[in-house]
């Protein structure tokens, strides 16, 4: 395969996401401008200019009309996807680590960091009539995290729950009507860097600093499978058409300069979803992979790395041949 290399960022990529149809690919990095690309030919549609700090997270709603970004400049911004303009900018007390639209696109959740004397907090806002007045409105729900910081977050089934991953490896599920924790598990021992839902929402895959990725049932939080590697895992994604999971990670960014590209293990690693066995690797990045996303049609996937590149890999025909 000949991957497409998208070079729109000056600093390391923090998150990439496809929209629902998969025709657009959104990327954000530690520089201040999220980018949007046409996924089939790698053409850049535009950049969203307005943030003043590193962008940690982004999400796009199911109609591809709104984009939400969370930044180190202590704001969450909601954008008009088509024109690249800010609809609303919501100030926070510390930097915004994760943000997600609910499945319906009516609400959005975002979480802030534990920093500057502030606790990590989870906010839920109504975005149906988002405009500049959203900054003054109170959030629908606000849950402070007393012990640990949220490092990743997902909406649960029917927009009734929120699943959070914490820096101590804890995974919790919150009922947003009752506003309290329903269940929590401690299967991971390191920070949860990323969580991604399977296409039907019944299970999700986590990527953790403890060098494993795990598959969880999204109702009961039961750990179903474990994928073991030797390096911290930064991101994991489940294929929508095959029983495959792709893991990305590698040496910690601060240790990269003292490691050779061969020893750093910056490959994307493909595991069988059920047998937990690694069956393939794909080289490409020359730094750790920070974010991975499968195209909704499962025929390609994109990876964003510490090296600042986004690579869109389209699978060869050999990928679809049966393995076992």
């Amino acid at each position: 395969m000949r991957p497409l290399m998208l070079q729109g960022h000056e600093r390391s990529i923090t998150q990439i996401k496809y929209n629902r149809e998969g025709d657009l690919l959104f990327s954000c990095s530690k520089d201040q401008k999220p980018n949007v690309w046409y996924s089939n030919n790698g053409e850049r549609l535009g950049t969203y200019d307005g943030h003043q700090g590193a962008i940690w997270c982004l999400d796009v709603d199911w109609t591809t009309s709104k984009l939400i970004t969370g930044s180190g400049d202590m704001t969450t911004k909601i954008w008009d996807v088509e024109h690249g303009l800010v609809i609303a900018s919501i100030p926070a007390k510390s930097s915004v680590r994760t943000c997600n639209f609910s499945y319906s696109g009516n609400q959005a959740a975002y979480t802030t960091d534990k920093a500057m004397g502030q606790n990590s907090e989870l906010f839920i806002i109504d975005v149906r009539t988002a405009d500049s007045s959203l900054a003054e409105q109170n959030p629908i729900l606000r849950i402070p995290m007393l012990q640990s910081k949220i490092t990743s977050m997902l909406w649960g089934s029917l927009d009734e729950t929120i699943i959070t991953g914490h820096d101590n490896g804890q995974i919790s599920i919150w009922d947003i009507r009752k506003g309290r924790e329903v269940n929590s598990v401690n299967d991971h021992t390191g920070s949860i860097n990323d969580m991604q839902m399977y296409k039907d929402g019944t299970m999700f895959v986590t990527a953790s600093k403890d060098t494993t990725a795990k598959l969880f049932d999204s109702e009961s939080l039961m750990c179903l499978k474990t994928y073991k590697t030797e390096r911290p895992v930064n991101s994991a994604s489940i294929s929508p058409i095959m029983d495959h999971v792709v893991l990305g990670g590698g040496q910690d960014a601060m240790e990269v300069t003292t490691t050779s590209t061969k020893a750093g293990k910056f490959d994307s690693r493909f595991f069988h979803l059920i047998y937990e066995e690694e069956f393939a690797r794909l080289k490409g990045h020359f730094g750790p992979i920070n974010s991975l996303a499968f195209h909704p049609d499962g025929r390609s996937y994109a990876s964003g790395g510490e090296d600042g590149f986004v690579r869109v890999n389209t699978f060869d025909s050999t990928y679809y041949e049966p393995l076992f």
């Binding site: 395969m1 850049r44 535009g46 069956f279």
Partner: peptide, 27 residues
């Protein structure tokens, strides 16, 4: 829009490149 406002239709070679051929390494 944004930084791509002045780009012509089609991929801009400044931001979009085709990487060299790689193969999946089957283990």
């Amino acid at each position: 829009f944004g930084e791509s406002k002045n780009d012509k239709p089609g991929p801009n070679s400044q931001t979009t490149m085709v990487a060299e051929e790689i193969f999946m390494q089957i283990l």
